[in-house]
Design a protein around this nucleic acid. Structure first.
Length: 553
DNA sequence: GGACGGTGAAACTTCAGGTTGCCTC
DNA sequence: GAAGTTTCACCGTCC
């Protein structure tokens, strides 16, 4: 691959245009006419040039905000709209029941044939944008690395605007991304299904950086790949699953297995690895997820001889099946135990699962909201199962973040809409879904663990919260949600019109129901409560007294 | 002279992403 | 560390 990498260095400008041919190398491409310098912003110039050539481009940037702004800046330079882009913009707006400012911004871009793409837009909007790009309606997508891998789009150009990204690992600050990642982004251009060639163009902000980019990314080698097996959560998860599935029965078999992994091959120091494995085995034994034959004789995992039997406990097997970090399972168990001493509240249950490795990244508590979060925590801390860390502990920030994330989920099940979540928590619609799904998975795990430990008192509460999380509703709507075709919006509409449960559905005339939820749903809902009813020919279209739209709530 | 709008500098804030599981009050 | 956003002072125009 590196052999095929060529570059064309346009010196004397404040940017570097590096043509990196990915497919068939065409030497003539080195003589392509210059990009018109209409604006100061090179990204805009390149985007407009791509459109002028009747081609398409992906622009890679390092933050969601940048992706949105870039797409919008380019859109502002495009005058015409088409019927296709107008229709597309409507689809974007209709993608969620109550569009947010982000949806409106995306629709404005789409109207001009550009779009932004990042983890914050919904799955449906992503699909619309990707399909429209394939159809050629959208010409430019400004994106974060969401589109860097696993997608096949007809992009002739990959414009890589940002090669640095903010990182808190190691030296905090802006750091160059790995070459491997650069290659992933560059590889989006010139796909074999659509083009015989493509261009990957880096934009360098200065002459100094121009040289660095040339050396590091265009002429440099991709990084070595390192095994991740030594990462503790990964190691203990796999260790437990090896024992739980019966793949290994003895410590010698465990060591033999790991000695044949890429990890052992790479580090070539089995004695050191053995020490790491033994400490994790001890941990699993302390958590009561594994057991040795001599357990009754107080033999710990590290004291075992190589041939002593080792097996998973019933609890350990279930933890392995649930596929969570054993440490998370251990923490959940501790918190479930403590729940007997605390008043049961949805906040406590939500916080129980938010302070886990699996929920990361958590919502950070910003400087200006610190006091506000503390004040709110003060009102709710009586419901928290975990032991509160000291304010001086390094994990206190993480604890506060878990509290904020729990508040976020609590607002979701309190029927706060996506716009509220966006402004209050800076969580975009696409991210909301992901967080809810992970919380639901961890709640399911808690339910399973509680069941095994006979702490069933908590399970009915967990079940209820999982149901509410799925729909984002208050408890009062649960009854209506049992009906197929009734979700958060329709249930709230029915409730506000006095129809609060299945009995209410039965008592309400079908014509009234049809006004609220539409004809087809009304007939179906009536059928579900055992009433086969036909709809009258004409339905009065006036609103019932007291009928209100969900928007007000 | 006051209201209003435009502009630009300064201060402030925030910073990518995706896999696992099961199916409900 | 840098881009993007917000805030605020300043200035010109209009009524």
């Amino acid at each position: 691959m590196s052999k095929n990498r060529q570059f064309n260095d346009k010196t004397g400008q404040n940017y570097i245009k590096l043509q990196h041919f990915l497919r068939k190398v065409d030497k003539n491409m080195n003589n392509t006419s210059d990009v018109e310098q209409k604006y100061v912003n090179e990204t805009i110039n390149l985007a407009l040039d791509t459109i002028k050539k009747d081609k398409q481009a992906l622009i890679f940037v390092n933050s969601k905000r940048s992706a949105e702004k870039t797409a919008e800046d380019i859109a502002q330079k495009i005058k015409k709209t088409t019927t296709e882009t107008e229709t597309l913009a409507e689809k974007i707006i209709e993608a969620i029941p109550k569009p947010t400012k982000q949806c409106e911004r995306l629709a404005r871009c789409v109207r001009k044939g550009t779009a932004f793409h990042h983890a914050g837009i919904t799955q449906k909007q992503r699909q619309i944008i990707e399909d429209a790009f394939r159809a050629g309606t959208i010409k430019i997508i400004a994106c974060t690395p969401t589109l860097a891998a696993g997608v096949d789009l007809p992009a002739y150009r990959s414009i890589i605007r940002d090669l640095k990204r903010f990182s808190t690992a190691g030296w905090s600050g802006m750091q160059y991304i790995p070459v491997l990642e650069y290659l992933q982004m560059a590889g989006r251009a010139g796909r074999p299904d659509y083009d015989s060639e493509g261009e990957a163009i880096c934009i360098a902000p200065s002459d100094t950086e121009k040289e660095v980019i040339k050396e590091k990314y265009l002429l440099g080698r991709p990084e070595e790949i390192y095994s991740k097996l030594a990462v503790e959560p990964v190691l203990r998860t796999y260790l437990l699953s090896l024992v739980a599935t019966g793949f290994v029965h003895k410590k010698s078999e465990i060591m033999d297995f790991f000695s044949r992994t890429f990890w052992a091959y790479q580090f070539n120091d089995m004695a050191h690895l053995r020490g790491i494995i033994e400490s994790q085995l001890n941990l699993l034994e302390n958590y009561e997820f594994i057991i040795t034959k001599q357990k009754d004789e107080f033999v710990t995992a590290s004291d075992m001889t190589e041939d002593e039997n080792i097996r998973a406990t019933f609890l350990g097997k279930r933890v392995a099946q649930l596929y969570i970090d054993p440490l998370t399972a251990h923490l959940l168990i501790k918190r479930i135990r403590r729940s007997t001493e605390k008043p049961m509240h949805e906040f406590g249950i939500l916080q129980m699962v938010t302070n886990t490795l699996e929920m990361r990244p958590l919502l950070k508590v910003k400087t200006k909201e610190y006091e506000q979060v503390l004040e709110k925590l003060n009102r709710y801390e009586q419901f928290i199962f975990q032991k509160e860390p000291s304010i001086y502990d390094p994990e206190y920030d993480e604890y506060l973040a878990s509290v904020k994330t729990a508040f976020f989920l609590m607002d979701w099940i309190d029927e706060k809409d996506e716009e509220f979540l966006l402004t209050q928590y800076d969580v975009r619609p696409g991210e909301t879904r992901g967080k809810i799904e992970r919380a639901d998975w961890l709640l399911y795990c808690s339910e399973e663990l509680a069941g095994i430990m006979h702490f069933n008192h908590i399970n009915k509460h967990i079940k209820k919260i999982r149901f509410r999380l799925k729909y984002g509703v208050k408890e009062e709507l649960l009854s209506l949600l049992r009906l197929k075709g009734i979700g958060r919006v329709r249930a709230r509409k029915l409730f506000h019109n006095g129809i609060k449960d299945l009995g209410g559905i039965k008592r309400t005339e079908i014509s009234v129901l049809a006004q609220l939820v539409g004809k087809a749903v009304a007939i179906d809902v009536k059928r579900q409560v055992g009433q086969e009813e036909e709809l009258p020919e004409t339905i009065p279209l006036t609103k019932r007294k007291g009928q209100m739209s969900l928007g007000k709530y």
